[in-house]
Deep mutational scan, measured.
Amino acid sequence: SLEEAIRRAEEALRKGQTFEYAGIRVTTQEALEKFRKWAEKQK
């Protein structure tokens, strides 16, 4: 689910890792916010 993907992205960010979902790379807090906004639109 998208909620699960967001949780995994947050977890990866805390560990300093890269999270990738549907071709979207989350490597920074800013990218995480963009990913969250994108995920909201997918619902």
Score class of each variant (00 low, 15 high):
residue 1 S to N: 13
residue 1 S to F: 14
residue 1 S to H: 13
residue 1 S to K: 12
residue 1 S to P: 12
residue 1 S to I: 13
residue 1 S to V: 13
residue 1 S to W: 15
residue 1 S to D: 15
residue 2 L to D: 01
residue 3 E to Q: 10
residue 3 E to T: 10
residue 3 E to R: 09
residue 4 E to M: 09
residue 4 E to H: 08
residue 4 E to I: 08
residue 4 E to Q: 10
residue 4 E to L: 09
residue 4 E to R: 06
residue 5 A to V: 14
residue 5 A to C: 04
residue 5 A to L: 15
residue 5 A to G: 03
residue 5 A to W: 10
residue 6 I to N: 01
residue 6 I to D: 01
residue 6 I to M: 09
residue 6 I to G: 01
residue 8 R to W: 09
residue 8 R to H: 11
residue 8 R to T: 09
residue 8 R to L: 14
residue 8 R to F: 10
residue 9 A to D: 00
residue 9 A to N: 00
residue 9 A to H: 00
residue 9 A to G: 04
residue 10 E to Y: 07
residue 10 E to S: 06
residue 10 E to R: 04
residue 10 E to M: 07
residue 10 E to H: 05
residue 10 E to P: 00
residue 11 E to K: 05
residue 11 E to P: 00
residue 11 E to S: 07
residue 11 E to N: 07
residue 11 E to I: 09
residue 11 E to H: 06
residue 11 E to D: 11
residue 12 A to S: 09
residue 12 A to Q: 06
residue 12 A to I: 04
residue 12 A to G: 03
residue 12 A to L: 07
residue 12 A to W: 04
residue 13 L to Q: 02
residue 13 L to I: 15
residue 13 L to Y: 06
residue 14 R to N: 12
residue 14 R to C: 07
residue 14 R to W: 08
residue 14 R to P: 01
residue 14 R to D: 10
residue 15 K to R: 13
residue 15 K to H: 12
residue 15 K to W: 10
residue 15 K to A: 14
residue 15 K to V: 11
residue 16 G to W: 04
residue 16 G to S: 04
residue 16 G to E: 05
residue 16 G to F: 05
residue 17 Q to W: 10
residue 17 Q to A: 09
residue 17 Q to H: 11
residue 17 Q to Y: 11
residue 17 Q to G: 11
residue 18 T to F: 14
residue 18 T to D: 12
residue 18 T to M: 12
residue 18 T to C: 04
residue 19 F to V: 03
residue 19 F to S: 01
residue 19 F to R: 00
residue 19 F to W: 06
residue 19 F to G: 01
residue 20 E to M: 08
residue 20 E to I: 11
residue 20 E to V: 11
residue 20 E to H: 06
residue 20 E to S: 07
residue 21 Y to G: 02
residue 21 Y to W: 12
residue 21 Y to S: 02
residue 22 A to M: 15
residue 22 A to I: 06
residue 22 A to G: 12
residue 22 A to L: 12
residue 22 A to D: 10
residue 23 G to A: 04
residue 23 G to Y: 03
residue 23 G to R: 01
residue 23 G to W: 05
residue 23 G to H: 05
residue 23 G to S: 05
residue 23 G to D: 06
residue 24 I to K: 04
residue 24 I to N: 04
residue 24 I to P: 00
residue 24 I to D: 01
residue 25 R to D: 06
residue 25 R to P: 08
residue 26 V to G: 02
residue 26 V to L: 09
residue 26 V to F: 07
residue 26 V to W: 05
residue 26 V to T: 00
residue 26 V to Q: 01
residue 27 T to D: 15
residue 27 T to F: 07
residue 27 T to E: 15
residue 27 T to Y: 07
residue 27 T to W: 07
residue 28 T to D: 15
residue 28 T to I: 04
residue 28 T to R: 02
residue 28 T to Q: 03
residue 29 Q to E: 12
residue 29 Q to G: 08
residue 29 Q to Y: 15
residue 29 Q to A: 12
residue 29 Q to K: 10
residue 30 E to K: 09
residue 30 E to P: 04
residue 30 E to W: 07
residue 30 E to F: 06
residue 30 E to G: 07
residue 30 E to Y: 07
residue 31 A to S: 15
residue 31 A to I: 06
residue 31 A to T: 13
residue 31 A to F: 05
residue 31 A to H: 13
residue 32 L to H: 01
residue 32 L to V: 03
residue 32 L to N: 00
residue 32 L to D: 00
residue 32 L to F: 10
residue 32 L to E: 00
residue 32 L to I: 05
residue 32 L to K: 00
residue 33 E to I: 09
residue 33 E to K: 07
residue 33 E to M: 08
residue 34 K to T: 11
residue 34 K to R: 13
residue 34 K to N: 12
residue 34 K to Y: 15
residue 35 F to A: 01
residue 35 F to C: 02
residue 35 F to L: 10
residue 36 R to E: 05
residue 36 R to A: 06
residue 36 R to I: 15
residue 36 R to D: 01
residue 37 K to S: 11
residue 37 K to V: 13
residue 37 K to Q: 14
residue 37 K to A: 15
residue 37 K to F: 09
residue 37 K to D: 14
residue 37 K to C: 05
residue 38 W to C: 03
residue 38 W to E: 03
residue 38 W to D: 03
residue 39 A to W: 08
residue 39 A to N: 03
residue 40 E to V: 06
residue 40 E to D: 11
residue 40 E to G: 06
residue 40 E to F: 06
residue 41 K to R: 11
residue 41 K to T: 14
residue 41 K to N: 14
residue 41 K to H: 13
residue 41 K to F: 12
residue 42 Q to F: 11
residue 42 Q to N: 10
residue 42 Q to I: 13
residue 42 Q to P: 05
residue 42 Q to W: 08
residue 43 K to A: 13
residue 43 K to V: 14
residue 43 K to E: 12
residue 43 K to L: 15
residue 43 K to Q: 14
residue 43 K to Y: 14
